[in-house]
Amino acid sequence: MSQVKVVEIFKSIEGEGKWIGLPVSFIRLEGCNLRCEWCDTPYSYDGKSFTLMDVDELVKRISEFRLKRVCITGGEPFLTEELPLIVKKLLEKGHTVLIETNGTLWNSGIKELLSGNLLITCSPKPPYYFIHPELLPHITELKYVVDETLSLGHIINEKTEKILKNDFIVLQPEGNRKEMVEKALYLQEEILKVGYESRVIPQCHKVLGLP
């Protein structure tokens, strides 16, 4: 039986991106290949805050929440070799699945599962904002944490222009800080100038005091 390292399973409202405010079941997988200085879930890659769980048991636990939508996050979910198996079993149970990734990795097993019920939110991270070329065509939402580093060129460039469309970019002010909100609004205006609309969305679950 396949086992995976699970940091936590819970249900809440989605606090980020275009699912914001909707009821969602969350699976947080262990491990991350990056170390962002403002990361708000360092326990997801500390190597000790996880439980080994059978994939079938994981899917059963999620189904018990009786929610349509499931978000697989981390850490970095693509570090988990069994990610395609988890997604396949969730889709078979009738769930809509969202994978949140930093975009640097890819698992070819995901490709055969791509459909309207599997969504991928890519949140490229500083300093390079690299997106794996195999992942790029399958992204359904780009989410950027607006910090001191982020610039317009990180958002709109030769690679991302291949997939950009309206209502595709989310700008998330880091830590919900006032100065980052102002920067997000500035970037939103700059993005408009090149022909695309974007959304400025804070981390609403933190505003509401939810997990």
Rank of each mutant, 00 (worst) to 15 (best):
L29H: 01
K11F: 02
E37W: 15
N107K: 15
P42A: 14
E92C: 04
I72S: 03
K18V: 06
L142P: 01
N107F: 10
F26N: 05
T140A: 04
D40F: 14
L34P: 05
K5Y: 02
V145F: 07
E141T: 04
V170Y: 00
E158H: 10
K183N: 09
Q172G: 02
K111W: 13
L58S: 03
N102R: 08
S115F: 13
F10I: 06
E134P: 03
V4D: 01
K111T: 11
E182A: 14
G195R: 14
L34G: 03
G109V: 10
I155Y: 00
I99W: 02
N157A: 11
H132K: 06
V70R: 03
E112H: 05
T104W: 08
I13T: 06
E148H: 11
I163C: 07
K125M: 08
L192N: 13
P124F: 10
L58H: 00
N107S: 06
T160M: 13
I13Q: 08
I191A: 10
S198G: 09
S2I: 07
G153I: 11
K88Q: 12
I156G: 01
G209L: 09
L90Q: 00
E30K: 06
P124E: 07
S25H: 05
I120A: 04
I156M: 09
C32L: 05
R69H: 15
T140G: 12
L29K: 03
N107T: 04
N176G: 09
V24T: 13
G15C: 07
T96Q: 08
L185H: 11
R61I: 07
K159D: 15
F50D: 01
W38Y: 15
E76D: 10
P126T: 09
C39T: 13
W19L: 12
K165N: 11
P126V: 07
I110F: 10
I9K: 04
L136F: 12
S25V: 09
N33Y: 08
D56W: 00
V145C: 10
E100D: 15
D56L: 09
R61P: 01
S115M: 10
L171D: 02
G21W: 10
E197N: 15
C122H: 04
I155K: 00
M1W: 04
V4I: 15
K162V: 07
E148K: 13
D147R: 05
E64C: 13
E134T: 05
L208G: 07
K89W: 00
P77Q: 05
E179G: 08
R177K: 15
G195V: 11
W38T: 11
D54M: 09
V145T: 15
K111V: 10
K178S: 12
Q3L: 12
G94S: 09
I163L: 12
V7I: 12
S123T: 03
C204G: 05
E100P: 09
A184R: 05
T121N: 11
E64N: 14
F50C: 08
P77K: 01
C71E: 10
G195Q: 14
G17R: 02
G75K: 02
I155C: 04
R199A: 12
D40C: 11
P211L: 14
K178P: 15
Q172V: 02
N166C: 03
W19I: 01
L22N: 14
P127Y: 14
D54T: 06
E148L: 13
L185C: 12
H95F: 08
K68G: 14
K18D: 06
I72A: 07
R177D: 10
